[in-house]
Design a protein around this nucleic acid. Structure first.
Lengths: 241, 241
DNA sequence: ACCTGAACACCGTTCAAGT
DNA sequence: ACCTGAACACCGTTCAAGT
């Protein structure tokens, strides 16, 4: 809704990579992943479909650029003086909110782990892991584990919102899934049936944060507290949850 | 390589859902995700592409069935009398090995979290979480957090092996990525640059297990040990790693 | 009931031709 | 240098027509 809203005149302004990315984000947000074709994009930009290829190598690069744009926006550190474990929670929630606002980004992030948007996230996660006092030889495994959790969630929420695209209400969709799960064989699927009862009422955000806290609690015994000397206000870590 | 190897005679035996799934797995394993088209599948089965639709609703259902088949195979519990936290490690490694052997399954699992194959994994994870003595009201969050980690990894390894499909050696591919990361701006990407030095030499399996151990360590304070009375041989849990 | 295969409605991508 | 848009080589899916 910013610069080139509708497909009508246009073509006075020159086409640019940024304009293409902006238009792609508009299509993705408004109509979802399936609606982003080079033809639709060209129509919105009032240009030929081939013109896009002059500014962007192919669709994969376009999607990577689009994801990078969105992730870059949340990369301003919202947790200035916060204690490191709190800072990582705040950052993770920012990622969560970005996926929630642009569900298509979940699929994109988990589809290509080497793209720049993922590097941005990894860098941020790594910085927080360092600040937590995780020893150097454990930082690789800890940071990538957190990344895996984030990307796994990302993929999941992309799908959850994918249903919402179809016009189906979120809670009724969850109720449908829960009903299907409840019909599973009690012998072989006791746990899934148990989970089913909690599925419709659960809070995504709380579930997400619980996962982060689980990992943070797991990091706790690894911490070298001397390395985080400046953050001694809070004691050690309250424990789980 | 089992029943209907080459596309030649055939058509004496009737087409069946199982035969279609088996052929699909063969194509996926041999030539990767991109090679599985209904035309290629029909050619391999020496039938018309439309015939497949009599046994399978669409491609999404086919991929879900294929993933379910592969995951079902690893669902025999390999950790009979093992202590619960060891049992979950063994199971997670079985999932890891399945993804390693069939890289395409990673993408498929993370693409649709409601498919049956994912339910199978969730059920197994949940059972182990229960055996660990996680209280009922925390089981949902803990089990889904582990699932997210598994699916996140799944997506990643699908990609890692996706390169291998292109004929590029795995270690040289990692070296290439590491070289690209090393060129990043030291100001903005110190952690990624640090990680880059460890990337080529690292062991996927060990990295994966470290992530599982991190989560297991995080679960530790949640455990109600009385609930796991029969597994009192090992003391509590040695701590991180 | 099950299979055939041409046809339909799309894709991403290319490329001669224009300005 | 940048854009046009028809054309190419694919897809998944449908469906009249066969057996």
């Amino acid at each position: 809704m910013t610069a080139e809203t509708q497909a009508s005149e246009r073509r006075k302004t020159a086409l640019s990579r940024d304009a293409i990315i902006a238009a792609a984000i508009e299509i993705l947000d408004a109509q979802g992943e399936g609606a982003l074709t080079f033809r639709a994009l060209a129509a919105r930009l009032a240009t030929g479909s081939g013109a896009i290829y002059w500014h962007v190598a192919d669709k994969q690069e376009l999607l990577a650029a689009v994801a990078d744009q969105v992730i870059a926006r949340i990369m301003v550190d919202q947790a200035d003086g916060a204690e490191p474990s709190e800072a990582i929670r705040i950052f993770a929630l920012a990622v969560f909110d970005a996926i929630d606002a642009h569900p298509w980004i979940g699929g994109q992030l988990s589809r290509d782990p080497w793209q720049h948007a993922v590097l941005r996230i990894l860098e941020a996660v790594g910085g927080h892991v360092r600040a937590l006092g995780v020893p150097a030889d454990a930082q690789f495994n800890v940071a990538t584990a957190i990344m895996s959790f984030l990307l796994g969630l990302a993929g999941q929420y992309a799908l959850g919102a994918g249903m919402a695209e179809g016009g189906i209400d979120r809670t009724t969709a969850l109720e449908e899934i829960a009903a299907r799960w409840a019909k599973l064989d009690p012998e072989n699927y006791p746990f899934v049936r148990f989970i089913a009862t909690q599925l419709p009422g659960h809070d995504d955000r709380e579930q997400f944060l619980a996962g982060i806290d689980l990992i943070l609690a797991g990091i706790e015994p690894l911490r070298d507290v001397a390395a985080t000397a400046r953050h001694q206000s809070s004691p050690v870590f309250p424990g789980g949850q």
